[in-house]
Design a protein around this nucleic acid. Structure first.
Lengths: 238, 238
DNA sequence: CGTGAACTTGAGATTTCTCAAGCGGGGTGG
DNA sequence: CCACCCCGCTTGAGAAATCTCAAGTTCACG
């Protein structure tokens, strides 16, 4: 069941065969969600972990008057409410596309984590990488132009999807609307739309039908001032 | 030595007496830094943890052309390079004020973490709270006005300093310059200055001589659309 | 008393926003 | 099978927040 999760965790730290087995024998129930369904909402104190087996999701929070901020996108293989193990949810996670989600009871997860320090470390490391991604988003929202922010986001999603083995021919699924992009980047939809046209016009990307197609990687990287280090993708585990 | 760290970790999870002892008997060397000194810089793969025993610090990254983004402020008691245990540093941490920093070798720390799952969890939880703070900053930079962002930052620093026992008479140390504030909030110094005058003019705060004085808490909260939940300060551990 | 960093102020320039409206395709009820 | 509707995308145009440039002031410190 959780093979995708094992792959993801293994990318975050060396796991022994026993660690593998422990994860794979975790009790799981699987459930499907449609695009736009909430996987978990602000204020919840969950008793299960949600693992994204397939599909994409996003974290977000909405202010009373409707202003929304998207804080992260999730790619298959990731636990999208890991903080729920230790904290009450302070934001909502919603399906961006149709998703298959594996539910793992916290009690079982806790037992594995306490008995297998390497697994806990791997999960911890994955939260640390998420933090690094957040910081990079801050860099963008605080100090980059709309154009760079959009290009940067595309670079990031593309690389993370590739790491999950979900890029083919420089294409990957990314069914975000322009409203999603705007809310992720702190822009208005109108402006996002205009900048998107610019990027398309320059032949850097195509972005239609829920699919991102990178036509000119180095151009896109340059436009986004993108440096992949913060994703810690290939770093040997330390 | 590490009593402050123990306090901080204990706020993040129940620790047994043995856990306490394990932390307190960690080997430590202490060092002083002046304001503006780097505690650790981007690209480092440290072999020690840095614990802020006193003073404040901030995380930041600077783009080639000089645009700087501050991603977090640190308050005494926090480990300011916890991610260094598992990751190469992707940003720099610099002293905001004069600091006293305790250095703990990773080998020793690792041993304690593996032998004491509750300690690892507490440390992990503290990274998760840092993430929550990052998300709140994103909310601000993406969707709040300059005024709300500044007020919000003051609320946050004030509450975190209070949690560390460092507020007296509604005052706490916060020796950030207006340039620091600007770089943390994604604003220009000029604009920061003007908004600051506004907040002062309304009698919400005073902010001089490296000291923050909250004159009207509820007014400041309102101006910042501040809701303290994301700090997870009083939450019972889960 | 000189110097530099931090803070202030003025004023014009930009980016980005808001409001408003039109377009287009897919999905649905009649 | 068609008409309608809604959501997402696009465009236009004026408005607002914020930025940049430039210069002056203040204050702590040597």
């Amino acid at each position: 069941m959780l093979t995708r999760l094992v792959e993801t965790l293994a990318r975050h730290g060396p796991l022994s065969p026993e660690d593998h087995d422990a994860i794979l024998s975790l009790p799981v129930t699987s459930r499907r969600f449609g695009a736009g369904d909430d996987l978990i909402v602000e204020g919840d104190a969950p008793s299960q972990c949600r693992v994204l087996e397939s599909g994409q999701a996003f974290r977000h929070r909405t202010l009373p008057d409707g202003r929304r901020q998207i804080m992260a996108f999730h790619v298959p293989g990731e636990i999208c409410d890991a903080e729920g193990l230790l904290l009450t949810m302070d934001h909502t996670v919603t399906a961006l596309s149709a998703c298959e989600v594996a539910f793992v009871p916290h009690v079982a997860m806790d037992a594995v984590l306490d008995a297998h320090p390497r697994v806990m470390r791997a999960l911890w490391r994955s939260s640390l990488v998420e933090s690094a991604v957040s910081r990079e988003w801050m860099m963008g929202m605080g100090r980059r132009t709309a154009r760079a922010r959009i290009a940067h986001l595309f670079c990031e999603v593309f690389l993370r999807m590739r790491a999950a083995g979900l890029v083919e021919n420089n294409r990957c699924r990314f069914p975000a609307t322009q409203t999603h992009l705007s809310d992720a980047l702190g822009l208005s939809v109108v402006h996002t739309n205009r900048v998107l046209q610019e990027l398309r016009g320059e032949g850097l990307i195509s972005f239609r039908g829920g699919e991102l197609n990178v036509l000119n990687w180095s151009g896109l990287e340059a436009a986004g001032e993108f440096e992949p280090g913060y994703l810690h993708l290939n770093a040997k585990h330390r």
